[in-house]
């Protein structure tokens, strides 16, 4: 499986610059937003999103045909792809957390969620990380099975652009509402405060749901990929 993952990464060779540039988006958010903790979510999302380059390259160079000639079964190919997503997600969360802490200390020295603290608290970060993983789980639930079934060219609209755009719009609207719309804050902040008081249980539930979504996506992806013809 590691060999397969390595090959996936090698296939993305021509997109390394794109992958780097995508990480500038969370940094831009850090510079221009008053909410550095959201950087964790953005970094996690944009990093895990990089896995879609494997689908692009698969069809561009017909790598999926190459995979079919290799001494690996189809289950391993799907498993490697999911492992790659989880690794990207982990890397994104790590980068986002570091950016968030450093950004809070150097650029703002304050946060809105926790106005008296100079850096986001552990609780706030844990909660944001859980939400990030959940969001990635929601996006990947339809994306990966669709792309593994149809390939990128046929499936990019409903398997990539639609879930990504829907989630981007959701995050953007939520960010704007939190920052600009007082009635929304009045509704959301008590929930956030409650969640912060019960961080461990809230995070556990969010992560549990995310794991279930990833598991559903994985089993669905295995089923459709086993039937795919090349």
């Amino acid at each position: 499986m590691l060999n397969m993952m390595r090959l996936d990464l090698l296939g993305m060779k021509s997109f390394r610059l794109n992958m780097f540039l995508r990480m500038l988006i969370p940094i831009a958010l850090l510079l221009f937003s008053s909410e550095p903790i959201f950087v964790i979510l953005m970094a996690a999302y944009f990093m895990q999103d990089n896995v879609f380059y494997t689908f692009v390259t698969e069809e561009k160079g017909q790598l999926n045909h190459l995979y079919m000639t290799l001494p690996v079964n189809r289950k391993i190919i799907v498993r490697a792809r999911f492992l790659l997503i989880l690794i990207f997600l982990l890397v994104g969360i790590t980068i986002g957390t570091i950016l968030s802490i450093v950004g809070s200390m150097l650029l703002y020295g304050r946060t809105i969620i926790l106005p008296h603290s100079f850096v986001p608290s552990f609780n706030a970060m844990l909660l944001t990380i859980s939400v990030s993983v959940l969001i990635c789980g929601i996006v990947n639930l339809p994306s990966l099975p669709i792309l593994l079934k149809t390939g990128y060219i046929r499936g990019k609209l409903i398997g990539f652009y639609l879930p990504s755009c829907a989630m981007a719009v959701f995050i953007l609207v939520a960010t704007v509402l939190v920052n600009e719309y007082e009635p929304f804050r009045e509704v959301v902040f008590p929930i956030v405060e409650w969640a912060l008081r019960n961080t461990l249980s809230t995070s556990a539930v969010l992560l549990g749901v995310a794991v279930l979504l990833f598991a559903a996506s994985y089993f669905l992806a295995q089923r459709v990929y086993a039937k795919r013809e090349f």
Binding site: R6, K13, S14, G61, L63
Partner: peptide, 17 residues
């Protein structure tokens, strides 16, 4: 079925394992 930007060395790195 190799990627356009792969070199023969990349191909060996990818396929050898």
């Amino acid at each position: 079925y190799f990627q356009e930007d792969w070199t023969p060395l990349n191909i060996e790195t990818g396929l050898k394992p």
